[in-house]
Design a protein around this nucleic acid. Sequence first.
DNA 1: CCAAAAGTGTTCGCCGTACACCCATGA
DNA 2: TCATGGGTGTACGGCGAACACTTTTGG
Lengths: 234, 234
Amino acid sequence: MVVSPDIYNLHQPMLVAVDCIIFGFDERGLKLLAVKRQMDPARGEWSLMGGFLGGNESLDEAAARILHQLTGLTGVYMDQLYAHSHPLRDPGARVVSVSYYALIKISGHNQEQAKAHGAEWFKISEIPPLIFDHNEMVEMALQLLRRQAKTKPVGFELLPEKFTLPQLQALYEAIYQKELDRRNFRKNIQSMGLLEKLAEKDKAGSRKGAWLYRFNIEKYEAFKNQGFFFNVSV
Amino acid sequence: MVVSPDIYNLHQPMLVAVDCIIFGFDERGLKLLAVKRQMDPARGEWSLMGGFLGGNESLDEAAARILHQLTGLTGVYMDQLYAHSHPLRDPGARVVSVSYYALIKISGHNQEQAKAHGAEWFKISEIPPLIFDHNEMVEMALQLLRRQAKTKPVGFELLPEKFTLPQLQALYEAIYQKELDRRNFRKNIQSMGLLEKLAEKDKAGSRKGAWLYRFNIEKYEAFKNQGFFFNVSV
DNA sequence: CCAAAAGTGTTCGCCGTACACCCATGA
DNA sequence: TCATGGGTGTACGGCGAACACTTTTGG
């Protein structure tokens, strides 16, 4: 494929992996999707979904491929997080792993496919010990999520298409582990003009029922490109 | 060194590189340190200082080693930026490069050593075309610098030990490419209690002379760990 | 009729922002 | 003495934060 000048040959090639920190959200809170590892070493332990970078793909492509393998989803919101490189981090070989974080709608993914990989959702507060440095990766991903929740409309990625304001507020409360004032929250969110009120109510959460909303996708895209400030104070 | 279960052998190892985006600051503005590349391909073109990740080091260690090779400095402020992975990004081989950004005091580095590597400082606004995807890396590093300047006392890393408030303000103006109000700037900075006024003036910039300050290192460390908000509005 | 969650406005204090004049000095 | 950059205080507006009562409806 390419010339390989001598200088390149003096150095040690190594495996490059991608690990995905997959977050979801439902009525019971913010959750992480982990899998039972199906290879040695550490077979049978809990792990992030991962894989190796192929010779003809970028890391973004690899991350999307790996997420798709597990969930059947495409076009998911993903961000590169960090390159983890301790020489002994993977006892099986010298592997540099680049972590990606993904936000998915729990209800939208292919559950059989996930189950076939031994995947399970864990509440953020109840994440089991994971292999290697995967718990660290999750911790970093949570920090990034908290940062991004202030400047990007992450709710768009984690909630179903139609959602209620109490749900949206619960999402922010789960991300920040902090109760928010209902009136201030509504004022802030609604002042952005991102939400469209629908003519339906969701009666699942209460007798009275809460109005359903959806995001206005054009405004969302405009915000995403122009930089952005999501007005939720924490 | 380690067992290599079969699964690992099915995947293609590749080179992992580190490239350093080195920023400095002097009276003429914010600057980038670039080198004339001394190997094929692209020998003789401008490039970031880089090198390959060794078998027994982490990326942080490699970045520190590479920075030290060029500048003689140790203990420098560095942050991992991004893993660049387009399959064809380096025409010499399949190389994933992890970029690091570094903030150094221009006056403190070993200038002969830098010259021996063909290094030169470029004003941020006059950066020449660099090899591969290095210009992109610089662009990302600038964005990170701008983000961090709001939440971390980056001035501490870029200014000499003793500096004046006009210098500090010029640094922020260079980072944000925006003029700041002198009175508001001073109020904000001084309200943080990070600065110690010295009994000397610097007469280099004006006839009247400006008071010299230094950072209070204990308060700086406390801030750095506890999270932080540098009150400069942009 | 009552429990449980949804919905709604106002007040206050602080912080960010705008703005203009005097000071010290070397040439 | 004057040109140049350094140093200082105040007033206003808007935003974040705190806070309590009414509405709906299924059981």
